[in-house]
């Protein structure tokens, strides 16, 4: 069955249903911005369906899409950094969510807590952890994706967890002292 866009509709629905949640979470956690994540997902899937030859299985498609999202999110992160420098703000900008968007995307405090903590990590630590936790990729695949060694991935994942643990425990202590 082929729809008007020339892409096999059954294949599109199956792949989209399976892969969108993974790709969207990766994009959302790397960028910290819901609109940006939607844009990245849209662009990544369009690139995927523009391929002349479809990838043989969903795992390869997932890896391919994560790689595209990773490249685009890196550009996004660089652009955001330039913008931040341009407006002269020294502190990190909080992820931009409109009120309605925030209500839609962040249903409870836990997810905001995770996102805020992730935003405090440098990109290279944040990305490996997100690819690990949401992408479900192993160290070897993450290494290939990021152009680093497996050992380097192991170190980055470890450092990301350590930093994340410290950030979260500080936040909890603050909550306790405020309460």
């Amino acid at each position: 069955m082929v729809n008007t866009s020339g892409v096999d509709e059954r294949r599109f629905n199956r792949e989209y249903k399976e892969l969108f949640p993974i790709i969207f979470r990766v994009a959302l956690r790397v960028t910290g911005d819901c609109d940006a994540a939607e844009d990245l997902c849209h662009d990544a899937f369009i690139k995927y369906y523009q391929r002349h030859e479809p990838l043989p299985d969903t795992d390869q498609a997932k890896y391919w899409l994560i790689r595209v999202v990773k490249n685009m999110s890196l550009n996004y992160a660089k652009r955001k950094t330039r913008e931040r420098k341009a407006i002269g703000k020294l502190q990190k900008i909080e992820p931009v969510f409109a009120d309605s968007e925030e209500k839609r995307v962040l249903e409870n405090e836990t997810k905001k807590e995770v996102q805020d903590a992730l935003d405090k990590l440098p990109y290279k630590l944040r990305a490996v952890l997100v690819f690990k936790e949401y992408g479900g990729l192993n160290y070897r695949d993450i290494g290939k994706l990021m152009g680093i060694s497996e050992g380097n991935v192991k170190v980055r994942v470890f450092r990301a967890r350590e930093q994340l643990g410290k950030i979260l425990s500080r936040r909890r202590q603050n909550h306790v002292s405020e309460g």
Binding site: R25, E107, N108, T110, K111, V114, L129, E133, L168
Partner: peptide
Amino acid sequence: LFHNDGVS
């Protein structure tokens, strides 16, 4: 925390 973040 990652897997139970409740992101809809």
